[in-house]
């Protein structure tokens, strides 16, 4: 092992690693979409008066919060095809990106569900009653009155969940996807690991910058969205 750093080489790795950025973005956006859909379904279950739906939703959330994403990846990527094979289904055609998107969607959906539930419950009951009182129907009341308010409440958590999801995309390399970290590892092994520290630091800096941008974007959107509304209540 070399005992020297070459910090000056770090900036040079950044554009090389960034070549894999589209892959990371693809994983991020797809996982975000599916996690919101699954999260919404789970939220409906957890808010429903049906005890079975309720128990299933809560059980799902608590299961997903207990399992490390890495273990979920191994379970699905290595374990599931074995089970499917034994019942005669061949999963070898499924792409690695699909596995990662599935895992990240599942694990993030629990956070999304908790976010949606909290945001929904944060909207004052009187709002729904007021909507009914002016003659709105259930879904109209939700779409026009409840949802816009709940969305405002959820923005900071949503931003946070997206940032966490973005960081978790770094696990894509574990199944061999060439995302940002996968690319970094490829660059490092191409030079037999001699520059691995510099490459990992460069990757860290990329994640740091993107998270920084995402965080400020989330704060900006929150401000824009809640500006008029906060004034109205004061």
């Amino acid at each position: 092992m070399g005992h020297t750093y070459d910090f000056k080489s770090i900036p040079g790795y950044i554009p090389k690693i960034m070549k894999a950025f589209p892959v990371t973005i693809e994983i991020l956006l797809l996982s975000l979409l599916f996690s919101i859909i699954i999260g919404a379904i789970v939220t409906v279950g957890s808010l429903s008066k049906n005890k079975v739906c309720n128990a299933i939703s809560k059980g799902y959330i608590s299961f997903m919060r207990g399992i490390p994403t890495l273990v979920l990846i191994f379970l699905l990527y290595l374990g599931l095809p074995q089970v499917m094979n034994s019942i005669g289904v061949d999963m070898s055609g499924v792409s690695k990106v699909a596995y990662i998107v599935a895992c990240l969607s599942l694990s993030t959906s629990a956070n999304m569900a908790e976010m949606m539930r909290a945001a929904y419950l944060a909207v004052d009951k009187g709002q729904r009653e007021a909507a009914f009182s002016v003659g709105m129907k259930g879904f109209t009341a939700f779409r026009r009155i409840i949802f816009p308010q709940a969305f405002g409440v959820a923005i900071p958590t949503l931003g946070n969940n997206i940032i966490m999801l973005f960081k978790e995309t770094s696990l894509a390399f574990t199944v061999g996807v060439i995302d940002l970290l996968g690319k970094a590892r490829a660059i490092s092994s191409a030079s037999y690991g001699t520059n691995r520290l510099e490459v990992y630091i460069a990757t860290g800096i990329i994640f740091w910058i993107i998270c920084f941008v995402l965080e400020n974007l989330s704060k900006f959107i929150e401000k824009q969205y809640t500006r008029g509304r906060k004034k109205a209540t004061s």
Partner: peptide
């Protein structure tokens, strides 16, 4: 800000390769 922006896996790699040096 740095720690919150960098995934744990990358932190682990950086610590693993930087600390021995």
């Amino acid at each position: 800000s740095f720690m919150r922006g960098v995934p744990i896996i990358i932190l682990l790699y950086i610590a693993y390769y930087a600390l021995p040096i």
